[in-house]
Simulated assay, not measured.
Amino acid sequence: MTMSAPIETTKPTVQSSPKQVGVLLVNLGTPDTADAPGVRVYLKEFLSDARVIEDQGLVWQLVLNGIILRSRPRTKALDYRKIWNNERNESPLKTITRSQADKLAAALSDRDHVVVDWAMRYGNPSIKSGIDALIAKGCDRILAVPLYPQYSAPTSATVCDEVFRVLARLRNQPTLRVTPPYYQDEAYIEALAISIETHLATLPFKPELIVASFHGMPKSYVDKGDPYQEQCVATTEALRRRLGMDETKLLLTFQSRFGNDEWLQPYTDKTMERLAKEGVRRIAVVTPGFSADCLETLEEIAQENAEIFKHNGGEQFSAIPCLNDSDPGMDVIRMLVRRELQGWI
């Protein structure tokens, strides 16, 4: 008797469509509008983050809601209006970050299944909206890119906190990667050096020295273990080596202090005052801790600190633009993203 062939019980393999890989650029944030209500909403979210103000107790809540949010939005709104992108009705930070994402997407267009989006830690577009958009486009893997060269808990870590909060609400979570700080990566230092040299070549004067101004932080945060100050020092030392300068020609300072606590020193504004009084007449300032120009660079440095310098005897002051979406700046972002996407694309 002839035996029939066994019945095939294995299901045929179904070729599923390739999944997408998402890249989410994240910067600090900005108000939606350059008026007191818009700034108030932004400051409320920003200053209610325990990474930014660690003691969120009753005293701080009284100060925040009873004093700061009643008075500060009006004055900060005036500052935002000085730098506002009126054509698009948005802050320069939002304009630049969008452009960075667009240029990164174009640079990765040769890579199949990569989707690029952008978000702000505080304000809009939110991290949640960015992640939701990437998932809606089929991304089952997401690379979060905090656009901070130096790590700190109030910047890099709070981006991760929010990403994790968003993912915690999902039953089907995408796989996540986060780019590390890049404070002394060769491409970053080279981009800074090129941006400085290019800018100085356009000036009608030769600065006697350059000040590298980083965003400040309460000294107590560093005392508790935050590596931010150490990484700012490492960036500055690497930049000095690349430019052939010593600590007398490329100074390190910290700006944007807030409240009555001691912050990292030397302070940028006090340094501007001191240098002018000591006879320095020509100066340039670079802000290596910012990946895109914003209120702290365009208003605080380029306007407020320029006025402090000139009021005390200085004559010529120039603020060097951030890397922004320039070719050297985009080289840094492309390097960082391509490196961290290895194995996914």
Rank of each mutant, 00 (worst) to 15 (best):
M1A: 14
M3L: 12
M3V: 11
K11G: 05
S16R: 13
L28C: 03
A34T: 03
A34Y: 07
P37I: 13
V39G: 03
R40D: 06
L47I: 14
S48P: 09
A50N: 13
R51E: 09
V59G: 08
W60N: 11
W60T: 08
W60G: 09
W60Y: 12
R70L: 12
T75K: 07
K82C: 05
I83H: 03
I83M: 09
I83L: 00
E90H: 05
E90D: 05
A101H: 06
K103V: 07
A105C: 10
A107F: 05
A107E: 11
A107S: 14
D110R: 01
V114S: 05
M120G: 10
R121L: 08
Y122C: 07
I127Q: 06
I135R: 07
C139A: 12
V145W: 00
Y148G: 09
Q150F: 09
S152G: 09
A153N: 08
T158N: 05
V163C: 04
F164E: 15
R165V: 03
V166M: 03
L167G: 08
P174I: 00
T175R: 12
V178Y: 03
T179L: 01
T179R: 02
Y183D: 14
I194W: 04
T202I: 03
E208M: 07
S213K: 05
V222Q: 13
D226T: 10
P227L: 08
V233W: 06
A234K: 15
T235S: 15
A238W: 10
L243S: 01
D246M: 03
T248S: 15
K249E: 07
L251E: 09
T253R: 13
F254P: 03
F254C: 07
E262A: 06
W263Q: 14
Q265F: 08
Q265R: 15
K270A: 08
T271N: 02
T271I: 03
T271D: 00
R274F: 04
R274N: 10
A276Y: 02
K277S: 05
E278C: 09
E278M: 10
R281M: 05
R282N: 14
R282G: 05
T287K: 05
G289N: 11
S291Y: 05
L295Y: 00
I301W: 11
Q303M: 11
A306L: 05
H311A: 15
G313I: 06
F317N: 07
L323K: 01
D327V: 13
P328W: 09
M330H: 00
V332N: 03
L336W: 09
L336N: 11
V337R: 02
E340Y: 06
E340R: 07
E340T: 14
L341C: 06
I345M: 06
